[in-house]
């Protein structure tokens, strides 16, 4: 038996494909219009799941809300190894990082990468303290072609806001008051 990521394109009629994060909202009326503006209609698709064995007919499974379906197949990536990295040093052509093995978090490693390994769009994120994920695994094209691959993805979190800084200032003040500092 083997386990693989699904080789079909993301099919949203199966509620989630691969990894999905889905918060459910109670959207207030004023927030609804931008979400539903400029959309057109299409007929909901049936789920492509099937019954098992014995030449039985397929059993369509519906969802309460019709969801879109991908029109194009996308390459898959199946990881053999993943790390979380934190950049410690940057030079003109390389950066060094401390790596945490996500399969065995007690293992810490250090690596030096060429900046060429990083996507152009991520280069401006590289600075000491920047956090990224490094994956080694297999990339499978929709045609079935498979290749070994190394992928660096830098974290993109919301920038520090005025509110964030105010909250930290308040928290710090409360702590100092508590300690009599």
């Amino acid at each position: 038996m083997t386990t693989t990521n699904t080789t079909r394109p993301l099919d949203i009629n199966s509620p989630y494909s691969e990894m999905a994060v889905t918060p459910a909202f109670d959207i207030p009326p004023q927030a609804r219009s931008p979400v539903s503006a400029n959309v057109s209609t299409t007929a909901p698709r049936n789920d492509q799941m099937t019954a098992l064995g014995h030449d039985r007919p397929y059993l369509p499974v519906g969802l309460p809300v019709p969801l879109p379906t991908h029109t194009e197949a996308q390459p898959l990536f199946t990881a053999l190894q993943k790390w979380q990295g934190t950049v410690s040093q940057v030079t003109d052509s390389t950066f060094s990082a401390v790596l945490l093995d996500l399969l065995e978090p007690s293992v810490e490693e250090v690596a030096e990468f060429d900046l060429e390994e990083v996507s152009r769009g991520d280069l401006d994120l590289i600075a000491p303290g920047a956090v990224f994920y490094w994956s080694i695994g297999y990339r499978t094209e929709p045609s079935g072609e498979r290749s070994r691959s190394s992928v660096l993805v830098f974290r993109r979190l919301p920038a520090w806001s005025e509110k964030d800084l105010q909250r930290a200032t308040d928290n710090a003040k409360e702590l100092r008051n508590n300690f009599g500092w």
């Binding site: 898959l76 993943k82 695994g137």
Partner: peptide, 18 residues
């Protein structure tokens, strides 16, 4: 959708990015 927001990825390298 009206009451749901979904982020789906089929690349393990990008789960955290999602």
């Amino acid at each position: 959708t009206r009451n749901r927001l979904g982020f789906h990825s089929n690349r393990e390298s990008h789960y955290e990015a999602a």
